[in-house]
């Protein structure tokens, strides 16, 4: 088999295995959707000022929870799954087999990205059906680019963070501690209009807010241009490059002891 079909085979079996673990599958899907429902229940009827006009808060939450979905599957889940695979010796087993390592990694990463996209689609569909949110039209290319770059960035960071994960049991704690606080200050759970300037400046160092804000632009019904956010996309790309560099230099196939 060539490398690409190996990656596809890997992806297929990865997907089979994922859905056979109902608890993991359930939480992967239910958490973002739960946030979407609860946050909309709590704050959904408020008005929110956006460039060009005023929208319902739901129009904020659909792209925000979409960003959260991509971050959860690509960063949180990927890092935790890979840490368990590393501890269980699955990575070491793969390392001893004649599969190009990129075929294996692409299979794993592609699975995380597909889950993220599926979740994004569910969130967007729920937005249209229940929250009267408009889907991107003229901003569709920008939305796709933002989503793709966001997925790539958080996958790279998910692999990079494995460097500081000593063992699989510690992985949920480390991964969540590194991402949850950022979500609170990055226009994911709460729109940051009233936040102190220094907090926004601080949040802008990290990639989470850039993804969220760029996605919100795609969903802004008053946006008349293409909706690209070059600065936000550049910051994401920089984080992606840093993540890839760290992952390439530190990735370990051996269980940590």
């Amino acid at each position: 088999m060539n490398s690409l079909s190996l990656a596809l085979k890997q992806l297929r079996y990865q997907n089979t295995a994922f859905w056979r673990n109902p608890v993991a599958a359930f939480f992967t899907f239910v958490f973002p959707l739960m946030f979407l429902v609860i946050l909309n229940l709590l704050f959904g009827s408020h008005d929110l000022e956006v460039p060009g006009g005023t929208v319902n808060t739901s129009t904020f939450y659909v792209p925000a929870i979409g960003a959260l979905s991509v971050i959860t599957t690509c960063y949180t889940n990927l890092a935790i799954w890979m840490s368990f695979s590393r501890d269980e010796g699955i990575l070491k087993r793969i390392r001893g087999a004649p599969i190009p390592t990129w075929s294996f990694l692409v299979g794993r990463i592609a699975h995380a990205v597909l889950l993220g996209l599926l979740l994004m689609a569910i969130v967007a569909a729920a937005g249209v059906l229940f929250y009267d949110v408009d889907l991107p039209t003229n901003t569709l290319p920008a939305f796709v680019v933002t989503l793709a770059l966001g997925a790539a960035t958080f996958c790279a960071l998910g692999l990079a963070v494995m460097k500081v994960i000593p063992n699989a049991e510690a992985s949920p704690a480390i991964v969540n501690a590194s991402i949850l606080p950022l979500m609170f200050i990055s226009d994911i759970f709460i729109p940051l209009h009233d936040a102190p300037g220094w907090l926004t400046t601080f949040a802008n160092i990290f990639p989470v807010r850039h993804l969220s804000v760029a996605m919100q632009t795609s969903f802004n019904p008053f946006e008349e241009g293409l909706g690209f956010e070059p600065v936000h996309l550049l910051v994401l790309a920089a984080w992606m490059a840093a993540g890839m560099l760290i992952a390439l230099r530190t990735f370990s196939w051996e269980p940590r002891r």
Partner: peptide, 8 residues
Amino acid sequence: STGVERYL
């Protein structure tokens, strides 16, 4: 010290 996917 190696393993395989548990849900296959």
